[in-house]
Design a protein around this nucleic acid. Structure first.
Lengths: 371, 371
DNA sequence: TTGTAAGCGTTATCAA
DNA sequence: TTGATAACGCTTACAA
């Protein structure tokens, strides 16, 4: 018993109509009498016929698939909770519309371009998501040249010829800084991502602005690469300063966790002597000791919104205005008032034991699309 | 300037040959003179022509793509370093052969089956990877019915009608137990994954066997769900026992890390009072305080091997024997001799500061394929 | 060695 | 409202 060697021709023959009639009936288009349509559909069901995507694809010049090219090393990919959630979210929309997702993972920028070129040349996809936007990013131009509809994921420079869907990360960072300021911190450092990325710069700027709006001088800022190793290194460098910060705002959870461990390893108590905030709310973050204060964004919803936007772009229709939920600032146990250098004999800070109740503050939201 | 409205007909016309000649030349097949071939290829290059996958796909009845359906929640997906690495690895092989990877993420088993059905009915893929094999898994039968070549990733029950590629995780667990026994532990617990998964059972059995081979009685064993939350819960339960274990072997790093934090939060020193081992070597694990002793497998190489195997299956040729590197047991700072309940005043265990030099022991390897 | 022509399974065009 | 018939872009017998 085979699956589907049945073709539209078979259905047409059995139903005693033309192929065109079958096609019309299936796609629910006018031009076929109601009873004829019924009969055709019945036959199709009996024969277990599903239209062939390949034939259809050739005929309509559409791949019915979209692409996601990720330029990351296996390690940074595996450590980032973003992609799994994003893909989950976009999949719900895509599969509902009969679209599939082609995933490509490459290691460097050159092969990333090559990847897009091939995707376009082969006609494998009808559009792509673009993540990790860089400050001077060549990909939008490339994709424009390739005539491949593109949705940029995350903050993107305004005014470009692209469509972007993103939750603005700035309010999350601002909330973190304000929280720390309210706790009494005056020397607040930042460990950013690589400055070539737009979202790195965006978060760094948010940190700087929030600090000066609080009437403080910006603390030290170190650019790292989002990896645990670099987060640890940056933290060491900050703690080695003549005037080490009393709080550090990290651009992602992975660096924050590694930084927290580094501090603890040096005998610096967290949060008593050093407060720490992350970004992402990784699945692990709530279960650390101390649990990590961080910023959570609804990445699944983001993926959904991006997929809707991309499909609209492909269909050349105006995409709906999508309201993305605001990022949440999640206060846990890794932040506290500064300057409690005492109690060095407190093993494991039992006071901050269970994650217990989390307090949340919400921030605002951004959704920018091509005008 | 448009990208590729060029078709094989254009190339044939410009080169002054037939479409067949172009096809033959492109696919490097005999039946066309060397100089003609050169000329054709030159024209193709000039015109920037790449054969359309859609036409080709329809003609050869092949999708030139393989599928990976992942049944995970966004959280467990994002926390697992496996998939990113696996996809990276398989991609290197697939893209080289002109294949692409279709990724589907679903939430439950029912929609997973649905996903496979659609993939097959649409002819979107020529074969699939099957991960997270369950003890009584219905998917192999389904895929056999769908006539979809399948490669099972990871340990699979022997004797089934499937082809499996996996690094045996047992030697890694055995190495962990032997390490703990050598350190002097006598009460070694295990936190496993859900017992419905073959790899959970495999790791649990390895733990049990290694313990009895050391002449010890098996310690307590709790099945969790691989999540941080469940790892924390299981750890609490173990520490609440009348005779709490002095060491815990976890089935993955995420649970181990959460468990470690839980212990520390309860005032239990790691590794002085409790030794902990993980599985995966997540990017973060080396940068924790204390750094996690764990088992590392070459997932990227595994992905490569699986892709080679799947393509061979699709092409109906015998796959090459692939030697997968043995899993490595990585000894870091979360394991130590038992019974040092003293020194409760040691903040942050500075003695275990930097990850420093890691000692590694290697274990053996498994690669089973369909006979 | 080369060219012709028939598929692959759709959708689209255009008479009837 | 229908039903031939021609694309779509490629591969592949088969004939020249």
């Amino acid at each position: 018993m085979v699956t589907t060697p049945t073709t539209i021709t078979d259905v047409a023959r059995v139903a005693g109509v033309s192929k065109a009639a079958v096609s019309f009936a299936l796609n629910g288009r006018p031009g076929v009498a109601a009873d004829t349509r019924e009969r055709i559909l019945a036959v199709a069901r009996d024969l277990g016929w599903t239209p062939s995507l390949r034939g259809r694809s050739l005929s309509v010049s559409r791949a019915l698939a979209v692409g996601l090219v990720i330029a990351r090393t296996p390690e940074t990919l595996g450590a980032d909770p973003f992609f799994g959630a994003f893909i989950s979210g976009s999949e719900t929309v895509l599969s509902e519309r009969g679209y599939a997702l082609m995933l490509q993972v490459v290691s460097d920028e050159a092969s990333e371009h090559e990847s897009y070129r091939r995707l376009a040349a082969n006609g494998r996809v009808d559009g792509v998501f673009l993540t990790d936007m860089r400050v001077d990013d060549l990909r939008p131009q490339l994709l424009a040249d390739l005539a491949l509809p593109t949705v940029v994921i995350g903050p993107a420079p305004a005014g470009g010829p692209w469509s972007a869907v993103g939750i603005d990360d700035q309010p999350g960072i601002v909330a973190a800084v304000e929280h720390l300021v309210a706790l009494g911190h005056r020397n607040i450092a930042h460990v950013s991502g690589p400055t070539e990325f737009v979202h790195s710069v965006s978060r760094r700027d948010a940190w700087a602005v929030a600090i000066s709006e609080a009437g403080l001088l910006p603390g030290p800022c170190i650019a790292a690469d989002f990896s645990a190793q670099d987060g640890a290194n940056a933290t060491s460098a900050l703690l080695d300063l003549a005037e080490p910060p009393t709080a550090i705002v990290y651009a992602n959870d992975l660096m924050a966790i590694a930084g927290m461990s580094t501090a603890i390893g040096r005998g610096v108590e967290v949060p008593a002597q050093l407060s720490i905030t992350g970004f992402d709310d990784a699945p692990l973050s709530a279960h650390l000791q101390p649990a990590l204060t961080t910023v959570r964004t609804d990445v699944v919803g983001w993926g959904r919104a991006a997929a809707i936007q991309l499909l609209a772009l492909i269909d050349q229709v105006a995409g709906p205005e999508i309201d993305l939920p605001a990022p949440e600032f999640v206060i846990r146990a890794s932040t506290a008032p500064p300057g409690h250098p005492g109690d060095p004999g407190d093993p494991g800070h039992p006071g901050h034991g269970a994650p217990s109740k989390e307090r949340r503050g919400s921030a605002s939201i951004l959704h920018r699309k091509k005008s």
